[in-house]
């Protein structure tokens, strides 16, 4: 018997997860689709569609997956549930991969496909409406871009979304493994506090060292924009080596580490 991974066992695990948690899974998918619908329905020709598209992307591939992984780790929310979950004949790798697979291979692609579908229907409609209102072709092209201009691996913003998705789901998976009850809320609170601490620490430090405030662009960890006291903005870039290190740490080492630690935690998890 293969004690690390067996396709058959994985299929049994996947099937069990889908049937036993069907209400939640249908619920989260249903709520996501309703939010998409409401967001697009409230869009009109007077506003750029991009803001609605970003709201949908944030809710669909950032918040939704975070809730999803926390719920799937609900098996650790009580002693009896933990016993049933951990004594089920499957390997730690299969349990870990199940969360990864459902999140990245099923949920996120489904959400992106649905979003594309909604977007195509509603944006085409808005473009037509704008045309009837005699908007110029340039305005229509800039205000009512289809979402595939964002959902594109060449797009830096989308890459940022994916990075946040992997890091955040990794953190929520770890939270689900560390906290027994209310893991989603506890992890969210912890992330929020860490975020606040980092911003506060950065501001205090830079104010002390430079006597100025610093704002940094989250998509590029190698450079910052310094806002001077006279409101002038100065672009400061770190050396190439430092930039390379920071970028690779945030883009590769951090997400990979989070998911690998989660895998090891599955192995060492006790009730």
């Amino acid at each position: 018997m293969n004690d690390i991974f067996s396709f058959r066992r994985f299929w049994y695990l996947l099937r069990k997860e889908f049937v036993e948690k069907r209400v939640f899974l249908l619920g989260i998918v249903g709520v996501t689709l309703i939010i998409f619908l409401l967001a697009y329905v409230s869009a009109d020709v007077d506003n750029e569609i991009m803001q609605y598209q970003h709201i949908c992307l944030f809710l669909g591939i950032i918040l939704g997956p975070a809730i999803l992984v926390s719920y799937m780790l609900g098996g650790f929310s009580g002693k009896s549930k933990s016993i049933q979950y951990l004594t089920l004949p499957s390997s730690f790798f299969e349990r870990w991969f199940l969360i990864f697979f459902i999140t990245f291979f099923l949920y996120v692609p489904f959400v992106l496909l649905s979003l594309n579908f909604f977007d195509f229907y509603f944006v085409s409609d808005l473009r037509e409406l704008a045309l009837r209102k005699q908007f110029s072709a340039e305005v229509i092209d800039s205000k009512f871009k289809f979402i595939d201009s964002i959902i594109n691996l060449k797009n830096g913003v989308f890459k940022g979304y994916l990075l946040v998705l992997i890091i955040l789901t990794g953190l929520f998976t770890l939270g689900g493994l560390f906290f027994k009850k209310l893991s989603f809320y506890k992890t969210a609170l912890l992330i929020f506090l860490v975020f606040v601490f980092i911003i506060y620490f950065r501001n205090i430090t830079t104010a002390y060292i430079l006597g100025e405030k610093i704002n940094s662009n989250i998509n590029n960890f190698g450079n910052v924009t310094v806002v001077l006291k006279n409101a002038e903005r100065v672009y400061v870039s770190s050396s190439e080596n430092i930039s390379f290190l920071i970028n690779n740490f945030v883009r590769i080492v951090l997400p990979l580490s989070l998911w690998l630690i989660a895998m090891l935690r599955f192995k060492e998890k006790e009730i």
Partner: peptide, 13 residues
Amino acid sequence: RKPSFLSNVYFLP
């Protein structure tokens, strides 16, 4: 907690 071990153990909590 290898599957070959767990498939030979049943724990009723």
